[in-house]
Simulated scan of single mutants.
Amino acid sequence: MSQTVKGVIARSKNAPVELVDIVVPDPGPGEVVVDVEACGVCHTDLSYRDGGINDEFPFLLGHEAAGRVEKIGEGVTNVEVGDFVVLNWRAVCGECRACKKGQPWYCFDTANATQKMTLAEDGTELTPALGIGAFIDKTLVAAGQCTKVEESDAAAVGLLGCGVMAGFGAAVNTGQVERGESVAVIGCGGVGCAAIAGAEIAGAARIIAVDIDDAKLETAKKFGATDTINSKNVDAVEKIRELTGGFGADVVIDAVARPETYEQAFYARDLAGRVVMVGVPTPDLKIELPMIEIFGRGGALKSSWYGDCLPERDFPALVALYKQGRFDLDAFVTERISIDAVESAFEKLHEGSVLRSVVEL
């Protein structure tokens, strides 16, 4: 039997979000209903609200979530009723060319629930953010979007569902930071700080945080930054080289994804170093680089999709690090809010005054 619960939607472009009644169907084959316990407020949700992703309104917002499996559909074997899970938007298919090449973190055909959640008022179908839609008491997802992890604080581990995993994975999976290497991270919001934490856990000897906000740079130190640079006051490229013996960093991670920050990352790396872009650029942005510089520096220019993560591999491992006290997920939770405070949380995102506001349900 379907359920009617409260959830947060974006009805039209740039309009304030609304808390409304939503009908959640019983799970069909391969689907799961999850009782959501907590969900982070991410920039991606704000982009959905503002029409920056697509125009498939109305959207059911929210995607960085954890909760408990309430119901399972026919054929579901990876989770059981009562399991504590973190939701993800990379439910790998196992059949596409990436999966068959042994690179499922690039899966080109990830799964979402087949059925749609709808507005109780008139039956309008909702588009769930990143195929999840978790600013809601209960949500319907594909079974592969549920990753069972050790029982934990949902507000903290739910952040693995997007931003924290993206940043951590940019350092560990995409950048492949090794012990003793130097790392520079440009942009010290939630994703950048997660990249810093990942670099520290991987054993980087020097971790340089770059931002234009001194408060964010102070926060970066808490996650493992050994040095900080306010690029509003000094030339970030020259300072990174100075801090790395004149050579540049082994790995430079751009967590902003603007032409000026990517150029900084490109020129701030050592010869044969790696540049990783994990920030998401808007479609209008372009950059020009001399081809001789691309050739002459060698190394690798990489983009990092969701931290190149494989949820079933990475989520349990990172939760284990959290439970051991080696990865401070609690530090990413700036505030815990109620479901009716999402719009004000978006304003704080604009201001850059939070790492994450987390809705607790």
Score class of each variant (00 low, 15 high):
residue 3 Q to E: 15
residue 6 K to M: 11
residue 11 R to S: 14
residue 17 V to P: 00
residue 20 V to A: 09
residue 26 D to W: 00
residue 27 P to M: 07
residue 37 E to R: 02
residue 43 H to G: 04
residue 46 L to Q: 11
residue 47 S to E: 01
residue 50 D to P: 00
residue 53 I to S: 09
residue 57 F to P: 09
residue 58 P to D: 11
residue 67 G to M: 02
residue 70 E to N: 06
residue 76 V to D: 09
residue 78 N to P: 01
residue 87 L to I: 03
residue 105 W to Y: 12
residue 107 C to W: 05
residue 108 F to S: 10
residue 121 E to R: 13
residue 131 G to Y: 12
residue 135 F to I: 12
residue 135 F to P: 06
residue 137 D to V: 10
residue 138 K to E: 14
residue 140 L to H: 11
residue 144 G to W: 04
residue 163 G to W: 06
residue 163 G to E: 10
residue 164 V to P: 06
residue 175 G to C: 13
residue 181 E to C: 12
residue 181 E to F: 11
residue 183 V to H: 02
residue 183 V to S: 05
residue 184 A to V: 10
residue 193 C to S: 12
residue 195 A to T: 03
residue 209 A to P: 02
residue 217 L to I: 02
residue 219 T to Q: 13
residue 230 N to M: 06
residue 234 V to T: 13
residue 259 P to Q: 14
residue 266 F to T: 08
residue 273 G to H: 08
residue 278 V to F: 10
residue 280 V to L: 15
residue 288 E to Q: 15
residue 289 L to E: 08
residue 290 P to W: 12
residue 299 G to W: 02
residue 311 P to F: 01
residue 318 L to E: 04
residue 325 G to D: 10
residue 331 A to K: 14
residue 337 I to N: 14
residue 352 G to D: 09
residue 355 L to Y: 11
residue 356 R to M: 13
